[in-house]
């Protein structure tokens, strides 16, 4: 019982602290520092109204600066220094040079790139297919729920689930992994250890993420498909387009924007993929990816310089998406 009570106490303390800050700071502003009465009432009110937004924003801004903006700069600095017992030494691009000479880095980079192409493409494709098909049947919503369900499962949980699917037993025993059982049933000669099979094993890890992300793509694309004006579709049908034309020539172009958003969102997830590789192979058998490479350098190799350099590479890869997002958001605000 002890930890539960302790946890509950901590939870209520943190909530009370947060609410207390907003309440108190507003109360102080209105009643002590700039009271809305007395001789300076007008000046006080307008000053208070200029300050108040910052009171509302301060905790969020502070957290964003400390927890996201500062680390980016600090990581950049760390990637250019070498850590010694006597302090940090500026080494310029030496960490990058060391990393670019590391076979493992290139393996991770290559793998990340193939994840980047395959996972968003297949997830979005399956998502679009599922969205289109489930829209036309009575039990579509139930089907959607089930395809969407893996979204709720942790990457680690999914890794356990799929590890059982890929499990291999010696040839003389009954197979308990579904894939091997099917493989033998359809005439395979011997059970395969799928997750050690080089090159192909990457695909088997990707399947786990595709399984998780397809539901996400489906949900968003389904909503987009439904928002296509009916007149457009009716017009196309009256003009005699067949279902294929209707789908590829009319519907897909109409939701191009949403497809792009889904694609980029999955791309960001893919770039950062860590848990699945860490849990299933830990980067062995040629399955290394950047995030796991970095984790390796940081926490096992204790090499902060190269680890930070890898993090910067990751950051550079998401930067185009970031720029595009910001531009898009600014356009929308105007």
């Amino acid at each position: 019982m002890q930890p539960i009570i302790q946890g509950l106490l901590m939870i209520s303390a943190s909530v009370v602290f947060c609410l207390g800050y907003y309440y108190l700071s507003n109360w102080l502003l209105d009643n002590i520092f700039l009271p809305a009465h007395g001789k300076n009432i007008n000046r006080n009110i307008s000053l208070a109204n200029q300050i108040r937004p910052w009171l509302f924003l301060f905790p969020a801004l502070f957290a964003l600066l400390v927890y996201l903006a500062y680390p980016v700069l600090e990581t950049l600095r760390l990637s250019l220094t070498e850590r010694h017992a006597y302090g940090d030494e500026w080494v310029g691009l030496a960490n990058y040079a060391q990393m670019f000479n590391d076979q493992k880095f290139w393996e991770a980079f290559r793998n990340n790139m193939s994840w980047l192409v395959i996972v968003p493409a297949i997830s979005t494709g399956f998502g679009l297919l599922a969205a289109h098909l489930t829209d036309r049947i009575g039990w579509g919503n139930a089907a959607k729920s089930i395809i969407f369900m893996p979204m709720a499962i942790s990457f680690v949980g999914a890794s356990v689930i799929w590890k059982l699917v890929y499990d291999a037993r010696p040839v003389d025993q009954d197979q308990i992994g579904l894939i091997n059982a099917l493989y033998l049933f359809f005439g395979g000669d011997a059970p395969q250890t799928w997750i050690t099979m080089s090159l192909w094993n990457n695909l088997f890890l990707m399947i786990v993420l595709i399984w998780i992300q397809t539901g996400f793509a489906m949900m968003i694309l389904a909503a987009a498909l439904r928002s296509i004006p009916e007149e457009t579709i009716e017009a196309a049908i009256i003009d005699g387009s067949n279902p294929w034309q209707l789908f590829f020539r009319i519907k897909v172009p109409q939701i191009k924007g949403t497809i792009l958003v889904v694609w980029t969102t999955i791309t960001i997830t893919v770039l950062k993929v860590f848990d699945i590789v860490y849990a299933m192979t830990n980067g062995h058998w040629g399955t290394q990816v950047l995030a796991n490479y970095m984790f390796d350098k940081f926490f096992r190799g204790n090499d902060w310089g190269v680890g930070s350099a890898a993090a910067i590479v990751l950051m550079l890869l998401v930067t185009p998406i970031m720029v595009w997002n910001v531009k898009h958001a600014r356009k929308e605000m105007q």
């Binding site: 801004l61 964003l64 680390p71 980016v72 990581t75 860590f274 998401v318 910001v326 605000m333």
Partner: peptide, 27 residues
């Protein structure tokens, strides 16, 4: 709320949406 720099702050938040949290671990 009206205050100077609001649009810039929104852009800042949108930019931070994609920062990989791996960046933040060691710092």
């Amino acid at each position: 709320m009206q205050f100077p720099g609001r649009a810039l702050l929104v852009a800042f938040v949108v930019g931070l949406l994609v920062v990989p949290l791996q960046m933040a671990l060691i710092p």
